[in-house]
Amino acid sequence: MSEMTLKEEWERLDSETRQWLLANPGCVLVPRTVTARIKQESVSRIEVDDHGQMMLSREDLDFIREKGADADAGQGSVDFRFFDATQPRTPD
């Protein structure tokens, strides 16, 4: 089993974990609660310290910043539309 990289595991992570990582792009040491969620979804080996925290590599940090920049760049260009489950009735 290889050591985990966020790039390889990103799609397996739940949205809450991804959001936390994107909101904390400079965090080198991931809190144990977030680490536990990553370990739960990961298929790779994750090394943790004595406190259950995971240390991110330079590659992981660069990946998170890249993902964050992609998300920021896309915010203005995507038009999200929400629809009700049923269509409103129009008068005859």
Score class of each variant (00 low, 15 high):
H51S: 11
L61F: 04
A71G: 06
S44C: 12
D50W: 00
R18M: 01
R81L: 14
M1C: 05
D70W: 10
P25E: 04
Q75H: 15
T33C: 07
L56H: 01
L13N: 00
D84G: 08
R89H: 12
R32P: 00
W10Y: 04
M4T: 10
L56F: 06
K7R: 15
R37Y: 03
E66D: 10
R18A: 02
K39V: 02
P88I: 09
Q40D: 11
V30D: 01
L22H: 01
G52K: 03
D14V: 08
C27I: 07
S77D: 14
R89A: 13
E9L: 05
Q75Y: 14
V28K: 11
I38K: 05
R65S: 08
D60H: 06
S44I: 04
R45D: 07
T90P: 02
D72S: 14
G26C: 04
M4S: 10
L21A: 07
D72Y: 11
E9S: 10
K7G: 03
D79R: 15
P25L: 05
L29K: 12
V43M: 09
N24P: 05
D72C: 12
L29W: 07
H51R: 13
T35D: 05
S15V: 14
A69G: 00
F83G: 10
H51T: 08
D60W: 04
T86W: 09
V48H: 04
R18E: 04
D72Q: 15
S57Y: 04
E11F: 08
S2I: 13
M55T: 14
S44R: 10
Q87V: 15
R37P: 02
T17G: 03
S57E: 07
M1A: 08
E41P: 02
V30K: 00
Q19K: 12
M54Q: 04
E3P: 00
S44F: 11
L29V: 11
R45W: 07
D60P: 01
A71H: 13
Q19C: 06
F63E: 03
D84E: 11
A36W: 05
Q75K: 15
F83D: 10
E16F: 13
